[in-house]
Design a binder for these strands. Structure first.
Lengths: 330, 330
DNA sequence: CAGACTTTGGAAAACGCTTTCCGGGAGGTT
DNA sequence: AACCTCCCGGAAAGCGTTTTCCAAAGTCTG
């Protein structure tokens, strides 16, 4: 293991000088010594010991990213956006997946705190359980007191910088658009009740229908993934349009309808939410609400990194996109 | 910032005792002192400073994961598998995306070396450029000399533990299966020449056709993603079956054929490779070669973590899965 | 050319842990 | 009762950096 001291000795300079040359210091070092140090470092194959550096500097070059599930393209897209800005800032990314377990989210914040990461990004819907939220807040506050920065992509419930997708508005506009196509009877394939994002989407959609004077939709709960969409869709009947609260559930619904011999959009229209890139080529192509996922991840990290006393919440509105999976009536 | 020393003082014990209680040591500590320390730690909200711990122990609890592109479900699935075993071992994961740039891959290995991560996982096809491979090997050797462990998911070119998808065999078996359906004239939507995985798939497929005495396929190169598949597919004509060297290219091809008014599988059959989970519900459902992606990621990390002098290569064979996108002729 | 700055190099004190030694006391054996 | 072992607590020496303080050597200025 080559240390700075080895480099310094080989270059015939002091530890201080070697440090100043190799790890960006504000101090100047004369050209000749600088060259000697660089040569020695290259010859010996020196690699900075980041742990030692972090300890001495009291600040690390790592950020933490906590997502629900990396194989869900929704999170992959957001993570990708965040990672691009991390890379541009020379920061490494430490990542944890909670698989939607609030306990694990808290545990990760604690671990990332122990790692003294520069910032933590919490990506994904908050939960309705106030106790879980409170415990998470406590942990976050603890981290922030020791200088950590936090941002969230989700609901503004943690008292930290947050990028908030306007789920209610997006769902409401989708509802209006679908009503505009002539639909009157809806079913909603909802996620679990304890996740706020899907709940907000249900409420936004439902409220909009009510405002339009349309009958209340039938709400069918399922897990927030493809299987949940499939399962919920097996119970759908008597409606002309179903709204799945996210695209992967919509995909499950499409599969269920196919298996049941129900044609989309001829027999029933289907719409999703998120506009997942990987699903762009589905047949029929999916009507949905587009969210700028990568941008949201990037923005969240920018917020976290940008020092500021009060916490900011930036709302992101989705854009309704009607494709082939929804058709006009009459 | 609460330190171990603060905890020790508050508990009225020595630093050594506090350390032994809070951070798994082999040494026993009496019940009463242990309780005092735990209480003090909880009261003060102590969080281990992992950087200091790493420095003192000379070993970290993080592993590095280098993938081409996280938004590609292929990599997300492998990463997920690896992350599950990491989590089960109490290891954190530091992740880097190269966007298929060999330079960046090398740079990440260097950075992860500086971080003194326990192990590095390189996920994704190797490149044909021997110079890039040599430079990467040099960097890896350097890392390993200082005790780092390395594993790779891809081709066995780096002299490290490797999980090798048998691309040739998988493609060959796919070719035989498709020939078994009666197809004689094939086109291959190939990836870029400098990536070995797609090249191997092309060769395996081509060789198998030759063995069967069938005409050589037309090979169309494109980028290793959806767009590449789309672009290459626009040039396809006069064949009954096209093999896209991975599923996302196949999706692009499906889209291209749709745009051209060519029906799949009636007018042309399409097969992919990888069996991406998210694409399971495509219509028509995609014939492909299934690779146990999560298992491969998990296995690679196991190999990396399992000490061994000589480097091991474990081959993984894909399973041909014929679905709706390929049809039998005659 | 004296005095006041500015540069630049080095010595050494942190940074917050882990772990090796030491030593004292408790328990067991002749 | 003397001798050995164990067991457990603490003092202190690292781990590899950064950075503060000094000091020496230039560089200006008047």
């Amino acid at each position: 293991m080559v240390t700075l001291e080895d480099v310094a000795r080989q270059a015939g300079v002091s530890l201080a000088t070697a440090s100043r040359v190799l790890n960006g210091s504000t101090r100047q070092v004369g050209a000749s010594l600088r060259a000697k140090v660089e040569l020695a470092a290259a010859e010996l194959g020196y690699r900075t010991n980041v742990a030692a550096q972090t300890l001495a500097r009291g600040a690390s070059n790592v950020i933490g990213l906590v997502v629900h599930d990396l194989t869900d393209p929704y999170f992959a897209a957001i993570a990708d956006g965040a990672m691009r800005v991390a890379e541009s800032q020379g920061l490494m990314v430490m990542i944890g997946t909670t698989h939607r377990d609030p306990q694990r989210e808290i545990a990760y914040v604690s671990t990332l705190n122990a790692q003294r990461v520069r910032a933590v990004l919490l990506v994904g819907s908050r939960v309705t359980d106030p106790e879980a939220t409170r415990r998470l807040r406590t942990e976050l506050d603890h981290y922030r007191e020791s200088g950590g920065r936090v941002a969230c992509v989700g609901q503004n419930l943690l008292g930290v910088d947050t990028v908030v997708p306007d789920n209610r508005l997006g769902a409401a506009e989708l509802a209006r658009a679908l009503a505009g196509l002539g639909h009157r009877n809806f079913a909603i394939l909802a996620g679990p009740d304890w996740l706020i994002a899907p709940r907000d989407r249900v409420e936004g959609f439902t409220d909009a229908l009510e405002e339009l004077g349309l009958p209340a939709p039938r709400v069918l709960n399922g897990s927030f993934d493809r299987e949940g969409g499939y399962a919920a869709a097996t119970q759908v009947s008597g409606v002309t349009c179903v709204f799945a609260v996210n695209d992967v559930m919509a995909v499950g619904a499409l599969a269920a309808f196919r298996d049941r011999g129900i044609r989309v959009p001829e027999d029933v229209s289907v719409a999703g939410f998120d506009d997942i890139f990987t699903l762009r080529d589905l047949v029929p192509s999916l009507s949905t609400v587009r969210l700028p996922l990568a941008g949201m991840g990037a923005r969240a990290l920018e917020l976290a990194l940008d020092p500021s006393e009060e916490s900011r919440a930036e709302s992101v509105t989705g854009e309704v996109i009607l494709r082939e999976s929804t058709r006009g009536l009459g």
